[in-house]
């Protein structure tokens, strides 16, 4: 499983880069599973949260701030279980 290490600060300005990075990783694996290493993340904002949730990738070793942020955003459930894939 390919792992993407997430940057330290996931604020609004980081959203675009985050999306590109995850997309790139997904592409590289040829549609395989990509794990997001959230161990170094210290800040998570609303826009990046959207990207993380939309990626439907599991988080690996989420840092304390990430766990807190997921709690704050009311999405703790997705910490362990990514959002169900879209039925498209």
């Amino acid at each position: 499983m390919v792992s993407v290490t997430l940057p330290e600060r996931l604020d609004s300005s980081a959203a675009f880069a985050l999306k590109s990075e995850i997309e790139q990783a997904v592409k590289n694996t040829g549609g395989g599973q990509v794990a997001l290493d959230a161990s170094g993340v210290t800040y998570l904002g609303g826009l990046c949260l959207q990207v993380l949730l939309a990626s439907r990738c599991p988080l690996v070793a989420p840092s304390e701030p990430v766990v807190e942020a997921y709690g704050l955003f009311g999405v703790s459930a997705y910490l362990t279980e990514p959002l169900a894939s879209l039925k498209e």
Binding site: S12, A15, F16, L18, K19, I22, E23, V26, G46, L47, L49, Q50, V51, L53, A54, S55, R56, L72, F73, G74, V75, L83, L86, E88
Partner: peptide
Amino acid sequence: SMVTCETAALPALGSLETEKSYLSWRV
């Protein structure tokens, strides 16, 4: 506070526009 996040509006990553807001919350 009890927070629930409404993620139904969230598209797939590919069609997600990073500067747009898709989530809504119920507190």
